[in-house]
Amino acid sequence: MSGTPNSGRPMDIPAEPAETVSTARWFARGAQQFLSIPAMILMASFVGFAGLARASGIGLVETVVMAGGIWALPSCVVLVGAVQTGAPLAATFIAVSLSAFRLMPMVMSIVPVMRAERTSKLTLLFLSHFVAVTAWVFGMAKLPGLPREARAAYFAGFAVTLTSGAMIVAGVSHELAGALPPLLAAGLTLLTPLYFTVSLWGAARLASDRLALAFGVATWPAMHWLEPNFELIWTGLIGGTAAFLVGRRIDAGRRRRVPADTENAGMEVGP
């Protein structure tokens, strides 16, 4: 995961055997990573989200519940957008669950990296709730450098702190959102598309991933015009299918030129 900040150099973790460091210590070390650039950008994005929620008539407690209960910022934004346009519950559920579909492959790919032999399914189910773009990119970049026994605790420390921080930030900024100058509020709202664009690009491994990002942005305006209530679903299906078909040809061509399996999906970071 060379596409993320802080991932270029080895971690600031001393090389002591995992057994000598308790789970609580690993949790604390993960939590310390809250003081990092991606975490700060995400916190600022939640300031923008709280402003969005408030502008859509969503209350303070409901906004905090959304931040912690959904956690994935795109899903939060889709839900708020549906509330804003007055979409019914069933249509909102469909739109949010289609935009959240990507969480399944994200969880599927981080679980083999995160778990040790003794990690229970219950622990993994609990930790899966905290998987979203920022925590996923963080985990895929940092966990392979840690002893297996430490990974779940380290990820929990980071991800639980991140989610708790976002809930506090969302609550505080919902309270203050009305007082923000328009220029500052606009700048905070822009953080989300900026950060998502570059972090998704950074996490992309295949040509189809990058094409999907480009095709999705390009397809949305037409879909919004054609199918105002289901634009995201159609954007995903049409943009994603096109990206898969074109990307598969590009990736196949690349594999033919590169004899070693260097072009294998780089998401499997195993021992």
Binding site: P74, V77, V78, G81, L98, S99, F101, R102, M104, P105, M106, V133, T189, T192, P193, F196, T197, L200, A204, L206, S208, D209, L211, A212, L213, A214, F215, G216, V217, A218, T219, W220, P221, M223, H224, E231, L232, I233, T235, G236, L237, I238, G239, G240, T241, A243, F244, G247
Partner: peptide, 16 residues
Amino acid sequence: VKSVATALVAGVIAQL
């Protein structure tokens, strides 16, 4: 699956 998922998030970016 990952392509469709990525395009969906790209749609969210476009919406914003």
